[in-house]
Amino acid sequence: NITNLCPFDEVFNATRFASVYAWNRKRISNCVADYSVLYNFAPFFAFKCYGVSPTKLNDLCFTNVYADSFVIRGNEVSQIAPGQTGNIADYNYKLPDDFTGCVIAWNSNKLDSKVGGNYNYLYRLFRKSNLKPFERDISTEIYQAGNKPCNGVAGFNCYFPLRSYGFRPTYGVGHQPYRVVVLSFELLHAPATVCGPKKST
């Protein structure tokens, strides 16, 4: 009989979020998941679920829940969905086509923008091939755009693969920082350890 609540607040209220190319993952297990707390949290810009209804989450049990978190621009949030393409979905964070879970995003301009620009948040701009679902690539190898080998030196046709967002408070909404948490639900042939409040007695 599990009684402790799942530590969703640790994920959602973290002081610093990860850059999207180096997205953070927390495994959540052996706890009671009260999703209504999240669902009623006012400032969400997006709360979209795939393969599961957000209002039914509290009735369900899962083997594991993974909480992935990172920061992207407002106009990139739409790429955090199954079957998407674009710089983020291709080179930074890719969801599987059969994704079961929820994508939760909110504007973090007050936290993550600075006058003069916040350059701490990076994304991958160049990559030889697209990421596989949930693949994480933190390499900083110089990207070779031409035929000539770069030998690890940036220059003509040789690019550092990461780019900084440089968030400023005055940017338009599409270019403002958004914090994103992706909850993915794993249902294995194993005992369920993460259940909603109704199922955990």
Rank of each mutant, 00 (worst) to 15 (best):
T15D: 15
P169K: 00
V173I: 03
K199Q: 14
Q144K: 05
N109V: 01
F126V: 06
D97T: 06
T193A: 09
H189L: 03
P191G: 11
T55H: 14
G146S: 08
G74A: 05
N107P: 12
I2R: 08
S164H: 08
V115N: 00
V173M: 14
V194L: 13
W23F: 05
V153N: 07
A46E: 05
K132T: 07
N75E: 06
F44T: 04
T140A: 12
P7T: 07
N24G: 02
S139Q: 15
L183M: 09
A192R: 05
D97Q: 15
N109H: 14
R16T: 12
N4M: 01
V52C: 05
Y119M: 06
L122I: 09
Y178C: 02
N109S: 00
D90M: 14
P54W: 09
N58A: 11
Y35F: 11
N157R: 10
T201G: 10
N75Q: 04
A145F: 15
S29Y: 09
Y119E: 05
T55G: 02
T170Q: 14
Y123Q: 05
P197A: 08
G166N: 09
S164C: 00
Y178H: 01
T15E: 07
T15H: 02
G196M: 07
A42Q: 01
S129W: 14
K110Y: 12
L122Y: 10
F41Q: 07
A46C: 10
F134M: 10
R16A: 06
V32S: 07
P7Q: 07
K110H: 05
V37Q: 12
A22D: 08
T55P: 07
S164V: 02
A154G: 12
K199P: 14
K132I: 15
H189P: 00
K26V: 12
T193C: 02
Y123M: 05
N147G: 09
V115R: 00
N40L: 01
T55M: 06
K56E: 03
S164A: 11
I2H: 07
I104Y: 06
N58R: 05
H175E: 15
V153D: 15
N24H: 07
T85D: 04
P7D: 09
L162I: 01
R127A: 00
N147D: 13
I28M: 11
N147C: 04
L125C: 04
F41C: 02
F44Y: 09
L60M: 05
G152T: 04
F156K: 04
Q84K: 04
T100F: 03
G155L: 01
D59R: 09
N4Q: 06
T3Q: 04
F156R: 01
Y123F: 12
S129C: 15
S53K: 08
I2Y: 07
D9E: 09
Q144A: 01
F126P: 01
P191R: 09
N4S: 08
F126W: 00
Y35W: 12
V194Y: 03
L111N: 09
V194Q: 12
A18K: 15
I138E: 14
T170M: 14
S139H: 08
T100Q: 08
A192T: 12
L188M: 15
A46G: 08
K148P: 11
D97E: 15
I138P: 11
N87W: 00
L187I: 10
A67C: 01
T55W: 03
K110G: 08
S53V: 09
G196S: 14
P54M: 11
T170A: 00
T3A: 14
K110S: 04
N151F: 02
S129Q: 09
A22M: 06
N130L: 06
Y119W: 01
Y35I: 04
A105T: 03
K128I: 10
P197E: 02
V32C: 13
L122K: 14
K26M: 15
G117A: 00
V115G: 00
S164P: 09
Y21W: 02
Y66S: 01
T193R: 01
V194A: 06
T201Q: 05
V115P: 00
E186Q: 06
A192H: 12
A145Q: 03
G83Y: 13
I2P: 15
F160W: 07
V20P: 01
P149F: 06
K199A: 15
D98Q: 04
N120M: 15
L111Q: 14
E186R: 15
F160G: 06
P54G: 03
P149L: 03
L60K: 13
G166A: 15
Q84S: 02
G116P: 00
L5Q: 09
R16D: 01
K199F: 10
E76D: 07
F126S: 13
G152D: 08
R27T: 12
S200V: 05
D97W: 12
Y39C: 09
I2S: 11
P149V: 12
K199S: 11
K199V: 12
Y35V: 14
N58H: 10
N1P: 01
N64G: 15
L162M: 00
T63D: 10
S36K: 13
H175A: 05
Y171W: 08
G196I: 09
S200I: 11
S200M: 15
G146N: 04
L60F: 08
Q84T: 08
L125Y: 06
V194R: 12
Y35A: 03
N87R: 03
D34N: 09
T63C: 07
Y123W: 05
L111Y: 12
R16G: 08
V37C: 08
L111R: 06
K199C: 12
E141V: 12
F156N: 14
N64M: 12
F44P: 05
T15Q: 10
V115E: 00
D97Y: 07
V32L: 05
A154V: 12
V32R: 12
T55K: 06
G166T: 12
R73T: 02
K128V: 02
S78Q: 03
P197H: 11
F44V: 05
T193S: 08
K128A: 04
T55Q: 03
E186S: 14
V32F: 06
P7E: 02
Y35L: 10
F126A: 04
L5T: 08
G166H: 02
G117L: 00
L60I: 08
S139A: 07
P197C: 11
A46H: 11
K114A: 00
S53E: 10
A46D: 04
N151H: 10
R27M: 04
L5S: 12
R73P: 14
S164R: 03
N151A: 15
T100H: 01
Y39S: 02
Y159W: 12
Y123R: 09
T100L: 14
T3M: 13
S113A: 06
L187Q: 08
V37E: 13
K198Q: 06
A46Q: 15
S29G: 02
S139T: 11
Y39Q: 12
Q144G: 12
